[in-house]
């Protein structure tokens, strides 16, 4: 078996940028990356990183159920993800088991259920590869409109409820005593995260969606000293890494989703190095 060598041709960049599907993909990457970074900012502080992973895996089950029932999977996915997120939230709150262990059980079982259900499907025109790793190059203008609207809704809700979100993240009782409707906001955030995962999974894939939520936010957390800056840096890093990853993928013919995640990882490493150097300088002075 031979190794395929990726070909990088800088002269191809204008040609890559000129193709309509690549233009849609770049815009989709920018919006999805920004959305992931924005929601991830709160998800990582609330230790919901694993929750987004479980949601991603459950999305595969939702898609498969849609195929089996003969319904368009994209129509099934959002209600499925929301119901799944609400059920998991109830389970986590009522169970006396550690959250990470419980979420591990849930996402392994979802994945196993989805693979078993897929084995009952004769053929799926989308292909399992696309489900797992996404197909951002196949993103349509309608998809872009949905993701753009979702970004606007998320941004408006999180900014209007910033005080509630931060206090809830710090200490639920402190937030409750300060007049924050903790139960309502906790649920609203989880539903929003579920919808974002469900909408983004087509472009990013079930295996890589949690990277879009977790990695830019972790990098932003290392770099920021003020909360609005943290939200901005995480969102910008999410969008910028997606753009760079997609361009690299377009120039090298490597898969798009994994290329974006590798760029995110490189961004995270840079943020880590920068924050450590800053800490050393701070302690030296």
């Amino acid at each position: 078996m031979g190794w395929a060598t990726p070909v990088v041709e800088a002269s191809c960049l204008p040609a890559v940028l000129a193709t309509p599907f690549m233009q849609r993909a770049l815009l989709g990457g920018l919006l999805t990356g920004g959305l992931g970074g924005l929601l991830g900012s709160f998800a990582v502080l609330r230790q919901l990183s694993f929750f987004s992973d479980a949601l991603g895996h459950s999305a595969l089950l939702g898609i498969t159920l849609g195929i089996l029932l003969g319904i368009d999977p994209t129509l099934v996915l959002i209600p499925f993800a929301v119901v799944f997120a609400l059920l998991v939230n109830q389970l986590v709150q009522r169970s006396q088991l550690p959250t990470d262990a419980l979420l591990n059980i849930i996402y392994s079982s979802s994945l196993a259920g989805a693979v078993l259900a897929l084995s009952l499907v004769d053929s799926y025109q989308g292909g399992i590869q696309q489900l797992l790793f996404g197909d951002i190059l196949g993103i349509s203008w309608a998809d872009l409109a949905v993701i753009g609207s979702l970004l606007l809704v998320a941004l408006t809700y999180l900014l209007l409820s910033l005080r509630a979100q931060v206090l809830l993240t710090l200490h639920a009782d402190l937030a409750g005593a300060a007049g924050v409707r903790t139960g309502w906001h906790r649920l609203a955030f989880i539903v929003l995260l579920a919808v974002v995962v469900a909408v983004s999974v087509k472009a990013v894939g079930v295996l890589l969606i949690s990277a879009f939520v977790v990695i830019p936010a972790c990098a932003g957390r290392l770099l920021s000293r003020r909360f609005p800056v943290y939200l901005l840096v995480s969102s910008l890093l999410g969008g910028a890494c997606a753009l760079l990853g997609l361009l690299a993928s377009g120039l090298t013919n490597l898969p798009s989703g994994p290329s974006v995640v590798i760029v995110q990882f490189a961004g995270f490493l840079l943020a880590l190095l920068f924050s450590q150097a800053r800490n050393q300088l701070g302690s030296a002075s």
């Binding site: 005080r163 931060v166 206090l167 710090l170 300060a178 924050v180 957390r221 000293r225 003020r226 943290y230």
Partner: peptide
Amino acid sequence: GRFPLSVAEFVGFGFDPP
């Protein structure tokens, strides 16, 4: 871990009404 919120920002949330 690191929580990217300054003391002044936190105290400011005590000032804002619900």
